[in-house]
Design a protein around this nucleic acid. Sequence first.
RNA 1: GCGCCCGUAGCUCAACCGGAUAGAGCAACGGACUUCUAAUCCGUAGGUUGCAGGUUCGAGUCCUGCCGGGCGCGCCA
Length: 562
Amino acid sequence: MKPELDLFASLKSLVSKIITPELNAWGVGDMSGEISLERPAMAEHGDLSLNIAMAAASRAGKPPRQLAEELLHALETDDRFGDLCSDVSIAGPGFINIFIADKALAEAVTGSLARGDDFGRGIPAGKRRILLEYVSANPTGPLHAGHARYAAYGDSLHRIISFAGDSVKTEFYINDYGSQMELFGRSLAARYAQALGADAELPEDAYKGEYLVAIAERIAADDGDRWLSTVLPEPGEEAVGHFSTTGSRLILEDIRVNLERFRVSFDSWFSEASLYENDHLGDVIRRLEASGDVYHKDGAIWLRTTRQGDDKDRVLVRKSGEPTYFASDIVYHQEKLSRGFDHLINIWGADHHGYVQRMKAAFSALAEDPGKLEIIIGQLVNVLEMGEKQQMSKRAGKMVTLEELLDSIGVDAARFFLVDRSHDSTLDLDLEKAKLKSEENPVYYVQYAHARICSILRKAAEDRVDSSPCKTTVLQPQERNLVLKLLEFPGIIQTAAATRGPHRLTAYMRELAAVFHVFYHKCPVLRAEPDQVSFRMDLCRLTGNTIRIALGLVGVSAPESM
RNA sequence: GCGCCCGUAGCUCAACCGGAUAGAGCAACGGACUUCUAAUCCGUAGGUUGCAGGUUCGAGUCCUGCCGGGCGCGCCA
């Protein structure tokens, strides 16, 4: 976003320019990174507030208010600053409070409006290529509420980081390899036999979910009893392979369909099994050996991850000769890097947090910078039924699926709800309550503001409202509040992206909708004084654009009427 | 036992790099539609930010120790 179109950003750089000589004169060293303009909680404290005098006080060895006086003088005598600001004063322990001129605010609205759907978009940031991996489920069952949370979070993060200016691709890692897949194949084979009326028993610890019955019936319908002799009394290796492959393909298709309905899309889908089509594992192990941290013990191959701070060393290849999931993951991450990505973001559930250290250690062993690997731990979702916590288990088939969530509360409410709180907090989800909540979900509050704006603009077009150009340079308090809230948007985008926190955006939308609703009640638009109509329509347009953009960044629709 | 996350209004949650009088929504109570959408707005009430120390101009935020809850500590994934 061009600086002159982001009033807050350009004010910040102007203030920095003005006060830097003063800071230098105090001999406090480089404090340029600490200069920040904040929006005070209270209107009396100005539109923007500068706290650098207090931050510098101890290093300068002078009282903060005295320093503030010097900065105030520098600001007051600067012509450019005088053009943009109507007042500046010192308050409290040494805050410098800045009041922006109404004229500058009105011009910023015009400039922001001209950016259309790009209002708030950041400047493309260099050549860094990011790969964001999330959801990454076993294709052994439908996605559940926990996956839904990470899907909503990850997809929103993708949209936000991209909008903020970084280049991000997304990937779904399909865990279609290993013992869980074999167990899945055996479970499905038994269901298949049962579907054909045979007396087959599910293996121990089997996937017991009802969805497997439906899949087995479908395979029975497609293939008839062709496989029956190979699965009884015990399924052979070939049959297990067939059922796990066929079953996972069908489940993956179901996963794709539901994610698409959830407005979550991936640039690529990567199969773990495909890692074994060539000897990538051997290549990676040879590479790890160069670190000197690979050793053999008890018939297995180990990586000395303790050298990088892990609790214990980890097995790469079992004594059976099968690679561990850890080994797969190292190969996978090596593969990601070799595709040219230089920053990898993974979203993992809290139940995998113990895995972070060993993965970082693996990066070190590969002679890669562990800083290239950013792992975001998302806390879990508790599903409550009648207030009772339910254990979610894919194998036991006990879970609330993404599909059920969408059927009961809809895409918009589900996405807003799941992303509206920090990923760092455990989320309680009571499906019955969530259904009730759909009526009072804050998403409707935000969407309603958008619909209301559209309604005004429709009416303006119908009535051919006559609006002469804006002459007023004095804004009503409600207009000021709305403009100031709108101008926060570019900064909110940057913060949400940098802190990986989409919930900041939903919180912002609620605030924006609130100040708009207040504006709506106090400031008529179409029936305003003739020279005010044009500016108020601009305010409506810019608010509408901003809500639409913000909702879009969390994958929620912006209805034109409700 | 060790590691990570969390503890804020009755409930669900915010609070930017440590900023001024800790904010929203829901629930409760009282008001506002002959008007550009009342899915809205205005008002009232609601707090020792789990507890105890420490750091400093200033702590919900940082440090230490407790208490409580979640998750993990496999040659499962």
